[in-house]
């Protein structure tokens, strides 16, 4: 044995997420994932509501107390938006998957329509159905 093996050099990887200029479609892709993840938590709320309905008046009033409060209403509005945003995102992906709207500016319009559509629909639903 002569000498010692040189330490393996650690090759750097070129910077990626740190230097890439965020694009709308890229941010929308992240939001599709985030809303999808939020819906898992939202399912727990939905199940809680179902159980409360089945369990009777006391359990249901507890549910009403929690989600009738301001933080509770914020969560419910957030869930409304997450459902609608994820659903519209699914339609956006269907359109892209059949090969439509890949060109500029249609892909940007589609991403914007997804965002504006989900916010508008959520607000409309709450304005119409919430007893203000």
């Amino acid at each position: 044995m002569t000498g010692t093996a040189a330490p393996t050099p650690r090759i750097p990887i070129a910077p990626h997420m740190q230097v890439y200029r965020p694009t709308l479609t890229m941010v929308m892709s992240i939001m599709h994932r985030l809303t999808g993840t939020a819906l898992y938590a939202g399912t727990v709320v939905f199940v809680w509501w179902l159980v409360a309905v089945a369990a009777g008046r006391v359990a249901y009033e507890t549910f009403l107390d929690v989600f009738g409060s301001v933080p509770g209403l914020v969560v419910l509005f957030g869930l409304t938006w997450a459902v609608l945003h994820h659903a519209l995102g699914g339609i956006r992906h269907l359109i892209w998957d059949v090969g439509r709207a890949h060109t500029y500016p249609w892909r940007e319009y589609l991403a914007r329509a997804n965002l504006i559509g989900s916010l508008t629909l959520s607000a409309t639903l709450w304005v119409v159905f919430y007893p203000w």
């Binding site: 090759i11 750097p12 990887i13 070129a14 910077p15 997420m17 740190q18 890439y20 200029r21």
Partner: peptide, 18 residues
Amino acid sequence: MRAFLPLNFGTDTASWVA
């Protein structure tokens, strides 16, 4: 819009840029 993360982000210190 510029990237919103600091240049030296993550645990791969060999790739950090001085």
